[in-house]
Design a protein around this nucleic acid. Structure first.
Length: 300
DNA sequence: TCCCAGGTCCTAC
DNA sequence: GTAGGACCTGGG
């Protein structure tokens, strides 16, 4: 095994909770104990435990990249101390100690959540794996397994409908291709959004064709902003969070009995949660989401 | 065989 | 603005 790039001992970190939280789809547990995980981070293959990360394939990333990926620059207790008194969140914090928000590659994250549209988690993973195997660069590793980096925007922009369908993208193929072309052409600069405030970055991510949105709606945009660009004000609303809010924060949800989530309602609910939880609302979202999945025992 | 899934688009009001 | 249906496809 390679030497540890970075030791995690001084950080509040639970690999199982973090890497199987639904914010990322490229990690697998190496055994039943779920203590060791293997996954792709940009061009590298990493083995991760509670104690540290080991590079087992690809180039040699500096430890800053890994620190940043796990957001070790942020202290979870300090973040929770910014929330208003909240029994539900306090309970989630106790249950989910060591769950961290990641800083993924924004391009991969965006396409991953496009792949998530009307899909369950195993199916999302399959799509991302298929795309990587077919279009991504192979990662050299001494381990007895195959690993590929996530494909570039250029390679997906050039991909044919036939090839994208072969990756089991279904109707999402046209969204992926459209967004890939936009990024490859330089009309959407995701890295630049790192330094752009949440409210300005959000509309830039919503892709449009002649005035109409196409492929990236508010949920996918918010997931990308939160899980990769680290806009912690983002509060993605999906069916699980909606169920959670109805159950615990019912008063803040307009027309509480309707299942549908119109764009206007999305912003109303999301903004209301941003006002409630503040600058780190996205951390609250992550904890509430994982708690809800755990309650229903329906994850994976 | 049928039903559902970390949404989004389209159409008809 | 809003509700309701369609959408590819793998897995229960």
């Amino acid at each position: 095994m390679s030497e540890a790039q970075i030791a995690f001992s001084k950080f509040d970190f639970d690999p199982s909770l973090t890497l199987d939280s639904g914010q990322v789809f490229r990690w697998s547990a190496l055994d039943e104990s779920r203590r060791e995980w293997i996954g792709v981070v940009r061009q590298n293959l990493l083995r991760v435990t509670k104690e540290g990360a080991f590079v087992v394939g690809g180039s040699n990333p500096d430890s800053e990249l890994i620190q940043s990926y796990f957001s070790f620059d942020e202290d979870l207790d300090s973040i929770f101390s910014t929330f208003p008194p909240d029994e539900i969140l306090e309970s989630a914090k106790l249950q989910l100690r060591g769950l961290r928000l990641l800083r993924q590659d924004p391009w991969e994250c965006l396409i991953s959540f496009v792949c998530s549209i009307n899909c369950n988690i195993p199916s999302i993973r399959l799509k991302i794996e298929n795309l990587s195997r077919r279009f991504g660069r192979k990662i050299d590793t001494s381990l007895d397994l195959r690993a590929n980096a996530f494909p570039s925007a250029e390679s997906l922009a050039k991909a044919s409908k036939r090839d994208l369908l072969a990756c089991k993208l279904g109707f999402r193929w046209k969204y992926v291709k459209f967004i890939a072309r936009k990024v490859a052409a330089g009309n959407l600069d995701l890295e630049r959004l790192t330094s752009v405030p949440y409210y300005d970055a959000f509309p830039e991510l919503i892709s449009e064709v002649s005035g109409k949105t196409f492929g990236v709606g508010p949920k996918v945009a918010d997931c990308t902003l939160l899980y990769s660009l680290h806009k912690t004000e983002a509060f993605p609303i999906d069916v699980w969070i909606l169920r959670c809010l109805r159950k615990y924060y019912g008063k803040e949800i307009p027309d509480n009995n309707s299942e549908s989530l119109t764009p206007k309602k999305y912003f109303t609910v999301s903004d209301s949660m941003r006002r409630r939880f503040g600058k780190y609302a996205g951390y609250a979202q992550l904890y509430l989401y994982v708690m809800m999945r755990g309650e229903s025992n329906h994850s994976m």
